[in-house]
Write a protein that binds this DNA or RNA. Sequence first.
DNA 1: TGGATGACCTTAA
DNA 2: ATTAAGGCCATCC
Length: 110
Amino acid sequence: MTPFTEKAIEIIRNIPEGSVMTYGQIAALAGSPRAARQIVRILHSMSKKHRLPWHRIVNAKGEVAIKDDELHHEQIMSLRDEGVKVDHNGKVDLEKYQWRGSLHTRETTL
DNA sequence: TGGATGACCTTAA
DNA sequence: ATTAAGGCCATCC
């Protein structure tokens, strides 16, 4: 496996319940800021095998990026089950639930 | 305009 | 057949 994949998986598995991350964010933390699609790929393929909390991954807008309606609703239900308020449009409060990782609490964007 | 973002599709072992 | 890696490009703001 590539270090990127391993790191990405590690990051994903490090997302606490009630928190979400964006593709680009994970990709950036994994080492490739432009590899958001790789995260997509990983979540799509390796999530099941590696038992990843794929439902905690949303797009940069804080919305469920899944096209498959079934999985889409599944993610929403999973998120709500963890305490994440999911909008009817499948959007979550990114500013509130986005996992900032182990970084300091930078309130620059707040 | 341009840059960021994306739950894909293809190839390889 | 399965599992993992890679990347161009359309879309939105």
